[in-house]
Design a protein around this nucleic acid. Structure first.
Length: 191
DNA sequence: TCTTCGATTGTCT
DNA sequence: GACAATCGAAGAA
């Protein structure tokens, strides 16, 4: 059961929190590869100086300005892909960075993608999970609400508030306050 | 266990 | 020409 587009038409912080426990799937040659989302971060518009859209609309970040429910996939550090879910109405650049999942489907595919890696470390980072699920720039702009698409997010398990940790965002060291300390990272604690 | 640092390229100024 | 929403290896303690 794929999440309806309405799910993404809410404040990006709410979407980030509620994505925890949902099921991310990449369909590869008909095979389901994916897992449960356990970590996500919110990036909220041009005023958020940690958000790519802080410099306005560019060729790179234009997908963030599209309608909620689409995938924003970008390349960074010369070697890593990152996966985001666009939120909000067309024209408002906000998105949720998917930072980690607990893999449940296509484990043999994942182990080929990430050889010699302990199970717990397979998808516990934003670049790790894109590598594990073979997500690249080809999927940039994909509609996550399309049941015939290759990449989609389905209803999963509800995560209660006392199983969620909220912290500042990671990897934005050069971002000035107050954005640096915004509690916009959501982590589902296992068990 | 903790900290430092190299890899590697698309994108923006 | 600078640097990035990172990772993992290597070295120190």
């Amino acid at each position: 059961m794929i999440l309806p587009r309405d799910f993404y038409f809410r404040p990006v912080q709410s979407v980030a929190r509620d994505l925890l426990g949902k099921r991310l799937t990449h369909l590869i040659s008909g095979q389901r590869v994916g897992g449960i989302i356990v970590e996500a971060e919110a990036y909220d518009g041009e005023q958020d100086l940690a958000c790519h859209a802080r410099v306005g609309k560019t060729e790179r970040n234009k997908v963030m300005y599209s309608q909620g429910g689409h995938a924003y996939v970008y390349f960074t550090y010369g070697m890593h892909w990152m996966l985001n879910c666009v939120t909000g109405e067309t024209g408002y650049p906000s998105a949720v960075l998917i930072r980690a999942i607990a893999p449940t489907d296509g484990l043999e595919f994942i182990s080929v993608q990430r050889p010699n890696v302990q199970e717990k470390q397979l998808c516990n980072g934003p670049a790790k999970l894109t590598k594990a699920l073979a997500i690249t720039g080809e999927l940039n702009g994909s509609d996550l609400c399309d049941p015939d698409g290759a990449l989609f997010i389905e209803q999963g398990e509800a995560i209660s508030d006392n199983n969620i940790r909220i912290t500042p965002r990671i990897g934005i060291q050069t971002t000035p306050e107050p954005w640096l300390s915004k509690p916009w990272r959501f982590v589902a604690t296992l068990s």
